[in-house]
Amino acid sequence: MITIKYFASLRAIAEKDDDSLDIENPITIDQLSDIISKTAPKMGAIIREKKVMISVNQEMASADTIIHDGDEVAFLPPFSGGAK
């Protein structure tokens, strides 16, 4: 099972804070976005259009990063901490 986390503006789009997903074999981020698109098309489109950053186990990932059972995947909108 993998854990999926949504932060800030993405929670409203995904309509949830987090999610979990059973995977039989390792999958890529692209494959994960296809799975997410089936239940949350808007979220899937945002991932495919690379409007968000993605981390796997709290390290930045790319489209071909492999996700394994037990991993934590997070979708991160552009950061805005700190101060101008």
């Binding site: 932060f7 991160l76 901490g81």
Partner: peptide, 14 residues
């Protein structure tokens, strides 16, 4: 450091 914090640290402002 402050520029890098804004660029790389997952903190969001509402």
């Amino acid at each position: 450091a402050i520029a890098e914090l804004k660029r790389t640290t997952p903190i969001w402002k509402r």
